[in-house]
């Protein structure tokens, strides 16, 4: 499986993301700078990492979503490519319109950096198939703008289509429906605020994130 990690000015979880893919696949992913206009050939999954792309200017993820490489990422997703956006990457995916809703300032105003408990909701995606429905995971969050906001009708649609990947056990940021991660309509784009790449080994305090990357290996290789 070949992974690409997009690097924006201000990304700061790109190397953690690269470590996660390397740990799961045995191969270092290709790092792709935001000014590139095309993805490398043969890429199976693209990751948009956490950080503060373009200094969070205008809105979190807004400028990144209009960068040259994101045109290529949109094309890749439109052809059924798998895309993972974590934290700022999730914000970029909503700004690109690849996922519904928006991420607003945390309801309690504060930046929150702590371990959270997540419940796996949908296992019907390449990212979550290695988990069990209802499985409780320990995955850290670190964000200021993770308050997932979506209209009632769209929220009902997400629920009806089983597109909620993860919910917070104890909602830290005011997110609608306790949502921590959502899937696209074709289930091949996942955006999530918690950082699975920061939960890979016992020294991280949790290994629960590793299965997300390991699960991709078999599925995307057979696809």
């Amino acid at each position: 499986m070949r992974a690409a990690v997009i690097v924006f000015p201000g990304s700061n979880c790109d190397r953690d993301m690269a470590v996660a893919f390397e740990r799961a696949t045995g191969h270092a992913p290709v790092m792709v700078w935001h000014k590139e206009t095309a993805l490398p050939d043969g890429v199976d999954v693209v990751a948009l990492p956490g950080g503060f792309s373009y200094g969070d200017y205008l809105r979190c993820g807004a400028i990144a979503a209009r960068s040259p490489i994101c045109q290529a990422v949109a094309g890749f997703a439109a052809k059924g490519g798998a895309v993972l956006g974590v934290c700022n990457g999730f914000q970029v995916l909503t700004e690109m319109g690849l996922l519904p809703g928006a991420l607003m300032r945390n309801a309690g105003i504060k930046f929150i950096c702590k371990s959270t408990e997540l419940d796996v909701v949908s296992t019907d995606s390449p990212f979550t198939s290695a988990y069990k429905p209802g499985q409780r995971l320990q995955i850290p969050i670190a964000h200021h703008d993770g308050n997932y906001t979506i209209g009632d009708a769209d929220l009902a649609r997400l629920q009806g289509e089983d597109r909620i990947a993860f919910r917070y056990a104890d909602n830290p940021n005011g997110s609608a429906g306790d949502i921590a991660g959502v899937l696209s309509e074709n289930r091949r784009v996942l955006g999530m605020m918690p950082h699975p790449e920061r939960a890979l080994e016992p020294r991280h305090g949790s290994e629960d994130g590793l299965a997300l990357f390991q699960g991709l290996v078999g599925l995307l290789e057979t696809a």
Partner: peptide, 9 residues
């Protein structure tokens, strides 16, 4: 529509 506002919110 394209950048300055996020018309979702």
């Amino acid at each position: 529509e394209k950048l300055l506002a996020n018309t979702v919110i």
